[in-house]
Design a protein around this nucleic acid. Structure first.
Length: 459
RNA sequence: GGUGGGGUGGCAGAGCGGCUAUGCGCCCGCCUGCAGAGCGGGUAUAUAUGGGUUCAAAUCCCAUCCCCACCUCCA
């Protein structure tokens, strides 16, 4: 049984339903997505893949915040419309995350396409007495929500005392947050209270309500706990009178030299850049190399380690493809089963992906060992293939596929002819030539196989 | 100041009372025409600090120090 840590209860809880609705807070599209975004999204993608593997019926919704001050400012700098900038970075988002082998969500709702839903939401909050209008906009009154602060475990009075938000005398309380803000200049939308733009938190409440009848897992980066998720809960529960979000999952921040990766610290590493250098598989392994709730340090050495780890897995994957012959395979079945069981145990334990990867490594070692001894038969390969592929799949790992291997096979033949004649220099030249194209040859007794390395240049 | 999470060998990362994971790196050897993978051996005297509980603590308790995140926009 899968057990997940719930930020709300601060306990590890079992996921008891069979239909699982997941809402992930996505990115604000005003710039390239960075490795920190990648980690959060890869974690949720892995969770989703695992749930699917376990037979759950998963529905996955992830939003795009496509309107806010940062987008407007960035667009102004570039001299383009905010909507144009947003759609450009949404496009880029898909380029990056498709390469990272992140499954597409069932829905990617955008804030600008749900203005009406938000307005309706706000109207009801006003009707119910949870929100009020000032000269600047519409605000949510946090004191009307008795359990405000329950997610972030904050005491409302302490929050008020230590509030860092600038004081707006019209607000009843410094913690009250905007549902709608008045703006005369574009981009803006009409509302019953005046032209303006929605506040940030309201989009997730309105959109998750629209696309998911119930949110079983709601999550995002750890930095969203307060105020974003706290506010979402306050609004949504005030609106529906029902609990909003069952399990709240939060992914730890990526750090560089011990400090959070963020725009303001200028220590961002855009995904496209890391992809170029290490490839998607290494990034996924890196992102999953530590428990998701812990902070993860970013540096080249760690990506390097992940890439080395990937090389072993990749090697095994190709050896399985090229395996030939028959033999006993009882042992292989046992190892595959053991490795898979350990993998599942690790995953069930609040997504202990690092240990899950270690379990895969166990099988990989077994495969590679047989391969080097020239005892990896097709029988053995068949006996372990399903488990191997399942684990690869859950982790979102995949080898590079190439459609035309005729030329490779031809060069291998030629090289082997040269080797037979002991013309090793020339043979090595062919191997070198292929290596430059990312094809690595592996000599076995009487035959040579190849693998296509997943490397940055391919992206 | 409040809230949460941490401090384990060169690096990453388990263990949550006894049996000192694991991976990577590094060194030596074997194997190979060479590579890759593999095999054998070695390396690190590892558990922030100081107390305490216990026959036994990295694991429990107390104190101290340090780090990070959140408390403003943020994945």
């Amino acid at each position: 049984m899968l057990r997940l840590y719930n930020t709300l209860s601060r306990k590890v809880e079992e996921l008891e339903r069979n239909d699982v609705n997941i809402y992930l807070c996505g990115v604000t599209v005003y710039d390239y997505s960075h490795l920190g975004h990648a980690r959060t999204i890869i974690v949720f993608d892995t969770l989703r893949r695992y749930l699917i593997y376990k037979g759950y019926n998963v529905r996955f919704v992830q939003n795009f915040t496509d309107i806010d001050d940062k987008i407007i400012n960035a667009a102004r700098e570039k001299g383009i419309k905010a909507s144009e900038l947003a759609s450009r970075f949404i496009e880029q988002y898909f380029i990056d995350f498709d390469k990272l082998n992140v499954l597409r969500a069932d829905n990617y709702p955008k804030a600008t396409e749900h203005i009406n839903e938000m307005i309706e939401f706000i109207e009801k909050l006003i009707d119910k007495g949870y929100a009020y209008v000032t000269s600047k906009g519409v605000y949510f009154d946090v004191t009307k929500d008795e359990d405000y602060g329950k997610l972030s475990n904050k005491n409302i009075n302490e929050l008020i005392a230590g509030a860092r938000v600038e004081i707006d005398p019209e607000k009843k309380n410094p913690l009250d947050f905007a549902l709608w803000k008045f703006y005369d200049e574009e981009p803006n939308w009409n509302s019953p209270w005046g032209k303006g733009r929605p506040g940030w938190h309201i989009e997730c409440s309105a959109m998750s309500l629209k696309y998911l009848e119930r949110v079983d897992i709601h999550g995002g980066g750890e930095d969203l706990i307060f105020p974003h998720h706290e506010n979402e809960i306050a609004q949504s529960e005030s609106y529906t009178n029902k609990q909003f979000g069952r399990i709240w999952m939060h992914v730890g921040m990526l750090t560089t030299k011990g400090e959070k990766m963020s725009k303001s610290l200028k220590n961002i590493e855009p995904i496209y850049n890391v992809l170029k250098r290490y490839g998607a598989n290494a990034i996924r392994l890196y992102s999953l190399s530590s428990h998701y709730r812990k902070q993860l340090e970013y540096n080249d050495g760690l990506l390097e380690q992940a890439l080395i780890r990937w090389r072993d897995i990749e090697h095994a994957a190709y050896e399985l493809i090229f395996a030939e012959g028959e033999s006993e395979y009882d042992d292989a079945m046992k190892i595959a089963e053991k490795s898979m069981n350990e993998f599942i145990d690790a995953m069930n334990n609040d997504l202990d992906t690092n240990n899950a990867i270690n379990s895969l490594t166990e099988l990989v070692k077994y495969i590679n060992k047989h391969a080097s001894n020239d005892t990896l038969t097709k029988s053995i390969a068949d006996a372990v293939r399903r488990e191997f592929n399942d684990m690869m799949n859950i982790l979102g790992l995949r080898i590079v596929t190439i459609n035309d291997n005729y030329e490779i096979e031809r060069l291998i033949e030629e090289r082997n002819r040269l080797r037979k004649e002991k013309r090793f220099k020339e043979a090595d030249m062919i191997r070198e030539e292929l290596r430059k194209k990312g094809i690595e040859l592996i000599d076995h007794k009487g035959r040579t196989i190849w693998k296509c390395l997943d490397r940055g240049e391919l992206y």
